[in-house]
Amino acid sequence: MAIWQLSLVHGYGGVPNLRESVLPPRLVLFLHCVTNGTLTALATGLGAAMEHRHGQLPAGGRWVLCASLSVYFVIAVAAAIVPGPAAQAPVAWGRLLGRLLPPLALSLAIGLFGGGLPTAVVVWLLVGAAGWSLLAHLARPMRAGLPDDV
């Protein structure tokens, strides 16, 4: 649910943090396709997690989960820093990094060091990473002086 809300409620065209009319439709479509690819990889990793739900997730499955979520957060950062119309306020970098850097770091850390963790712990830590980003999104707007949905 957190990823859905980040992509569709707080984004545009299924791309998290993207604002309407800041990119040509061709680039929005490209970012949409890349975002959907990461979500497809995430779903594949969750399927692998279900197969190994009572043990440890193999390294390949863990990396599919962690890397796809990491790429999702990189896309969210890239979409947030796309310059908009001159009337919009600049990106609040502290908020952006506080919202997206911890989940990105956590997902990469799980990929690197999470080999001994049970599958359920890996999945719930990644759910927590997505939830962190959403809760931070709801707590404070990304752009100084503008509503969050801009």
Rank of each mutant, 00 (worst) to 15 (best):
P85E: 12
G84I: 01
T44C: 07
P16M: 05
A76F: 04
A78W: 06
A87M: 08
S68N: 05
V34K: 11
R19P: 12
L57R: 06
E20M: 10
F73T: 04
G84M: 04
N36Q: 14
G45M: 07
R53E: 07
E51F: 15
T35H: 08
A67T: 10
P58W: 11
S21Q: 14
Q88V: 03
A79H: 09
Y72L: 02
G37V: 00
A67G: 12
I81L: 09
P83Q: 09
T35Q: 14
H54M: 08
P25F: 02
G60H: 03
A48Q: 15
W63V: 07
V77L: 13
V77N: 03
V22R: 14
I75H: 02
A87H: 12
V74D: 02
G61P: 08
V71D: 01
R62I: 13
H32M: 05
P16V: 03
A48P: 01
E51G: 10
N36K: 06
W63M: 14
A49K: 07
Y72M: 01
T44H: 02
S70A: 15
H52D: 08
F73V: 06
R26M: 11
L57S: 05
A49F: 04
Y72K: 00
G37S: 03
A48D: 12
L39Q: 09
T40M: 11
A59H: 07
C33V: 15
V28M: 05
R19K: 15
A79Y: 07
P58Y: 10
P25N: 04
T40P: 00
L29I: 00
G84R: 11
V82Q: 10
A43E: 00
T38C: 15
R19V: 10
G47I: 15
A67W: 07
A59P: 00
H52R: 11
L42N: 01
V64F: 05
A78M: 09
N17K: 00
L39H: 07
H54R: 15
V74W: 03
A49Q: 07
A80R: 01
E51R: 13
Q88A: 15
A41P: 01
L29C: 03
T40F: 14
L18W: 14
L42E: 00
A76M: 05
A78V: 13
F30S: 09
Y72H: 12
T40E: 00
G47T: 15
N17P: 00
L69M: 13
G47D: 04
A86L: 10
P85D: 12
W63A: 10
R26F: 13
L27Y: 09
S70W: 04
A41N: 01
E20I: 02
V34F: 12
L23W: 08
R53S: 13
P58G: 09
T38G: 06
S21E: 14
G37R: 02
A79N: 10
S68P: 06
W63N: 09
G55C: 10
A59Q: 11
L27C: 02
Q88G: 12
V74Y: 03
L27A: 11
P25E: 07
A43C: 02
V64Y: 06
S70I: 02
W63H: 14
V28F: 04
A48Y: 13
L42W: 03
A87E: 13
A80Q: 02
L29R: 15
A80W: 01
A80S: 06
E20D: 12
E51Y: 12
L29A: 14
I81A: 08
A87N: 08
R19W: 14
L23T: 00
W63F: 11
L39C: 05
